[in-house]
């Protein structure tokens, strides 16, 4: 598609990129293309194509491959113009339940992502600047959720904060009536933070570790305090991994299902849960598709940030 390709940064640091040591041969390029093709085809067929199909369905194009689902589903708006109809979107965007869910989804995503990145930065910086047993213990702890299937984690968190859970038990022993957090958005946020923490910590601390110690020493020698060193030297130098961690965390949370399904209230809950409700329980697949595209829209905004961060880093490394 494009001829000005950026080579992987790792490649440039360790080895000369492809095509420099040897002349670019047409055969080799073709081999590379065809080796890379299978996963792309898989995604084109089972991700790209269904998305196009479902978008057609969401705007009321119920013919062709959409015929089966349009017959099974209830409350399907059919196209009244050649390009389709916005009736399903109109229905959902005037639906109080959907708008409430949308708001909840955005709030949970913002709060959880901010908390995750804050914790990951704190742990990563502590590991980088202080080191020692305490720091290793902290980062080890933060990785634990990676070992636990999300289904179990959600359920464990639900029981921990439930009416007869640990927190309420401990406070009851002191005669304090602690609020029940189970089935509220509080546990959804707690669960989202819990499950997203390992990836963010791995990503952020690996980024922070690669900031050269000499740079930090130099900043300190120049008289910068701890905070100043962190804000204007360390964090900017690890910006790309931090942005990657932020985007992946946010995308994971915005579309999450298991955590809010287990720990959240019936309504309003996050869009992932309601999407599944509309699809299975209410048998309104078109409305479900509208929700999916709303979430896609939010996610693609976040994804654009990720792609931009990667391009930027590729460009920077290319100049270096």
């Amino acid at each position: 598609m494009t001829t000005t390709l950026h080579k992987p940064a790792e490649l440039q640091q360790t080895v000369p990129p492809a095509g420099v040591t040897r002349p670019k041969r047409l055969g080799q390029r073709a081999v590379g293309f065809f080796m890379a093709l299978p996963p792309i085809l898989l995604i084109a067929i089972f991700v790209g194509f269904p998305i196009v199909l479902a978008f057609g369905f969401s705007i009321g194009l119920t013919g062709g491959l959409n015929h089966t689902i349009a017959t099974i589903g209830q409350n399907v708006h059919e196209a009244d113009a050649w390009w389709g109809t916005l009736a399903a979107y109109q229905e959902m965007f005037t639906n109080k339940r959907f708008l409430g869910d949308l708001l909840v989804t955005v709030i949970v995503t913002l709060v959880s992502t901010a908390t995750v990145i804050f914790l990951a930065l704190g742990i990563g910086l502590y590991l980088k600047l202080k080191g020692g047993r305490m720091a290793r213990l902290l980062s080890g702890l933060a990785i634990v959720p990676l070992f636990i299937p999300v289904v179990i984690a959600s359920w464990a968190i639900l029981t921990f904060y439930s009416g007869t859970g640990f927190l309420r038990s401990v406070f009851a022993l002191f005669g304090v009536d602690f609020p029940v957090w189970a089935f509220t958005m509080v546990t959804v946020i707690i669960g989202s933070v819990w499950t997203s923490l390992p990836f963010a910590v791995l990503m952020v601390s690996s980024g922070l570790q690669s900031v050269p110690n000499a740079m930090i020493e130099a900043a300190r020698d120049a008289g910068a305090g701890s905070l100043r060193t962190i804000v204007s030297v360390i964090v900017p130098m690890a910006a790309v991994p931090i942005i990657i961690a932020t985007t992946f965390t946010a995308i994971g949370i915005v579309g999450s299902f298991t955590v809010p399904y287990f720990t959240g209230p019936n309504s309003p809950n996050m869009l992932g849960v309601d999407m599944s409700n509309y699809f299975s329980a209410f048998n309104q697949p078109q409305q479900s598709a509208v929700m999916a595209f709303t979430v896609f829209l939010i996610a693609s905004g976040i994804a654009a940030l990720y792609v931009w961060a990667n391009f930027r880093s590729a460009k920077e490394q290319g100049k270096a």
């Binding site: 269904p50 579309g255 999450s256 999916a292």
Partner: peptide, 17 residues
């Protein structure tokens, strides 16, 4: 893109196919 699209949304679209 497979990761950028939230899973539940993908499965809902996949179901039609």
């Amino acid at each position: 893109a497979t990761n950028a699209f939230p899973k539940m949304g993908l499965f809902v679209t996949l179901a039609a196919l």
